[in-house]
Design a protein around this nucleic acid. Structure first.
Lengths: 198, 198, 198, 198
DNA sequence: GATGAATGAGTTTTCATTCAT
DNA sequence: TATGAATGAAAACTCATTCAT
């Protein structure tokens, strides 16, 4: 199996940029609703309002479509994390953590079904989801923050995974508890050894 | 025509029990290796050494196969949790938690790939993974324990989800950190508000 | 591109042996009529009266179907050549050659369209049509004959190719000349240096 | 609205002549490499460096492209044959034949893969390869020659086919014998009844 | 019960051709 | 005229499931 492919052709004209966006949007919607196996390229093209051939002009195959959604998700997360850290620079570490969890949680809440599939069903492709550039950037960003608050920067990787796991694992529950952000940041604080605020 | 005499011979229950076990084993192996989409009932039957028709004699369809694996996993987890709690009754809550995490982690390490798929790729079937009896039993068991150590029993559900998410999310990493049990129980203790042991 | 594949499964039961024969027959007919590009596996299955899935149970892909026809043709040719040489052992070399040409020509005349395609359209597969066992056997058979009549056995290969080329090239003409066998054996005799019979 | 002035500028015929040449060249290359089925009009246009739309401006469809290549090949062959006969007018018939074979063989050797496909894969279109004007001219030319050397002019057609078949059949071998021209002209001489030269 | 050949709807993907710009 | 995005019919192939033996 070839590894996960990139986009086939850079959309240059306005019309095609629109087509690509429509395709991604449709793919997200169907993926969220029907899962990876239930998502057919024909359904995606139809919902996007383009011909199936056009879809294949921009994405060489089904996997590439999902990979693109994944990438998009990574970019959004990175942006949110950076913004939150910048905004909360003056807060206590514990509170910064809480802000981060809230922000990322909010991001996920926007497209719940999609993220569920993206995380859970990222099909058993050859390898672990490729650590793309955004992942690295995110890790770097968090590592710097940890370093700044006196926690070993080497915990960045695990922290991120924990956060991801907890967010997805709990958010996707039938009835996620209302104080989810609180619960999760408690757990992460426990892991980081940050003292509770009185 | 006279009706055919009912049963020529009491069908050996042993044989069919063996077939079911072989099928489940094969399904587990293939599911772990190829993911849900890559698991075909024919491949399962072949690896199990039974005819495809026989597979369908025991499992009405592909989903049922995966559901059975899920159930089996739930049963194993319940057994491990009960045993650990029984064995560690005299320990401090914090240490009991650590024991629990270690035990369940060990269980998962045995069939890593399988659990990844079981958790991540439980396909977007019509409904969320059915809350089977074992799940309820497990929840009850943990609730009782929490109650006993002075933590609200209502946290059982979330605790279980957290544990599950963390175990799967971290264990499946390319290079899971060596002190994984420690990290996870720190996080869970943080969530439960258990004081660190000095 | 993978090299030309073999049959996927040996038909064992009577029913399936029949299916394989029907598929090959249908493939031959359609290939002869529509050429390689015009031959679709679905058309073949339909004409054969089997489901498309059954076709793929015995032939892993379209190429394998054509390869099987090729093989069959090679076997028939070998049989005809052996029989003719056996029958004509007492004749003069020049006359033996004439007999051979006639016999093979007759074989080709039976399924004209098919052989046209088999020879002309054997698509640009990776390599020259694989020298299968029958080819080798045929070469050996002809080499022995050449040796027996005092012509270098090393001409067998070229002789066979010449014969093949001439038969296909001329037979497939819109109006092949009536004395085709004569013309071709004249040419081959010229190549072999066999004196004309008065 | 006033009608748009007809032609802003006489479209450079040079440019389009160049485009046609580039397209044919690209088609030849791809056809040789990938066969008829593997040749797509889009690939051809890309390799030729023109837009797919432009290709369709000069050639109404894919077949027309291949037909044009065929025609080109016919023209080259005709030219070579005429030149050879002119140059060798003083030679003996047997030697003239040898010269002809050598010359045409050389022509084919230049673009081996292309001719293979042109001859072998001329797809089972509705009709046999259209007997274009060049074919007729070639036939006439050869007929005249045969007449001049005292062989029935009616053998021109068969002679040409034989030559073609032998050249393609043998040249395309994995290891064509070194004395190919000799072998082929022996065979053709045998067919024409030309005496061997001592 | 056990077998495995047969089924065929459904999937992914290609590519000749068109046509708005 | 040139462009190249868009089209969509059609092709190869898969696989869950059935059912005659």
């Amino acid at each position: 199996m070839p590894s996960i492919p990139q986009a086939r052709k850079q959309p240059s004209q306005a019309r095609s940029r629109h087509a690509v966006a429509a395709i991604l949007e449709a793919a997200a919607r169907i993926l969220a609703r029907d899962g990876y196996a239930g998502m057919t390229t024909n359904k995606v093209a139809e919902l996007a309002g383009v011909a199936i051939g056009s879809l294949y002009q921009y994405f060489p195959n089904k996997q590439a479509l999902v990979a693109a959604l994944h990438r998009r998700h990574g970019e959004e997360t990175l942006a949110v994390v950076e913004a939150t850290l910048r905004r909360g620079a003056a807060l206590s570490p514990r509170r910064q953590l809480a802000e981060l969890v809230s922000a990322v949680l909010a991001l996920h809440q926007r497209e719940l079904g999609l993220h569920r599939v993206l995380e859970r069903e990222w099909p058993a492709f050859d390898e672990p989801p490729p650590s793309n550039p955004q992942d690295a950037a995110l890790r770097g960003c968090v590592a710097a923050w940890l370093d700044g608050i006196g926690v070993g920067a080497d915990r960045a990787e695990v922290l991120l995974r924990m956060a991801d796991s907890l967010i997805h694992g709990l958010l996707l529950d039938a009835e996620p508890p209302p104080d989810l952000a609180q619960l999760i940041s408690d757990a992460l604080a426990g892991f980081l050894g940050l003292p509770a605020e009185n």
